[in-house]
C-alpha cells in the first residue's frame, strides 16, 4: 500500500500497553480504580478522580451516541476512500466518553442510538477501535 494511503495507527505508551495488548485480540478495556470504583479512559496510570493507581478491566464497549459528524472531505488519501464516513462521540455504560469512527453506513447513525466498540486489525501495528452498530 502506498505510504499516503495508509491511515494512521495508534501509538502505544507504557501506560496504555494493557489496552493495546487486549485490543490485539479484539477485547476492549477501560481503566478501573480499585479505590473509588470509577472507570476512566485517560491512558495515564492514575485515576483522574482520586489519583489512586488504575488497572485495565474488560468492558462490553456498549455506548450511547451523543453526537456525530459525517466527514465528506478529506485531504488524507487513506480516508478519501472511506468518504463519506461518520465519526461519533458516545458515552460508554461505565461513564467515560469516547470519539471514534463509525464503521458502517454514515446514514445509519443517529443521536441516542447504541453502538459498540470493535477493533480493526492493522497487522503488525496497533489495532484501531471503531464503533459498530449493535
Amino acid at each position: 500500500m502506498p505510504r499516503d494511503e495508509k491511515r494512521p495507527t495508534p501509538i502505544r505508551t507504557d501506560g496504555t500497553a494493557g489496552f493495546f495488548d487486549a485490543a490485539k485480540h479484539g477485547e476492549f478495556m477501560l481503566q478501573h480504580c480499585g479505590n473509588c470504583d470509577q472507570f476512566s479512559f485517560t491512558g495515564y496510570r492514575y485515576c483522574p478522580n482520586c489519583y489512586a493507581k488504575t488497572e485495565w478491566r474488560h468492558s462490553d464497549g456498549i455506548a450511547t451516541v451523543k453526537s456525530f459528524a459525517v466527514v465528506t472531505e478529506s485531504s488524507h488519501d487513506g480516508f478519501k476512500k472511506l468518504l463519506p464516513y461518520a465519526v461519533a462521540t458516545a458515552v460508554l455504560g461505565e461513564g467515560p466518553t469516547l470519539s471514534l469512527r463509525y464503521d458502517g453506513e454514515a446514514g445509519n447513525i443517529a443521536i441516542g442510538q447504541n453502538v459498540k466498540v470493535a477493533f480493526q486489525d492493522n497487522g503488525p501495528d496497533e489495532a484501531t477501535p471503531v464503533w459498530v452498530a449493535l
Binding site: 494512521p8 495508534p10 501509538i11 502505544r12 505508551t13 470519539s99
Partner: peptide, 17 residues
Amino acid sequence: INVGTGIESLNGPSGIL
C-alpha cells in the same frame, strides 16, 4: 494533526483529522 500518544493518539486513526 497533532498525533499524540496513547489514548490521545486515537483521533488520527479514527479519521478525526
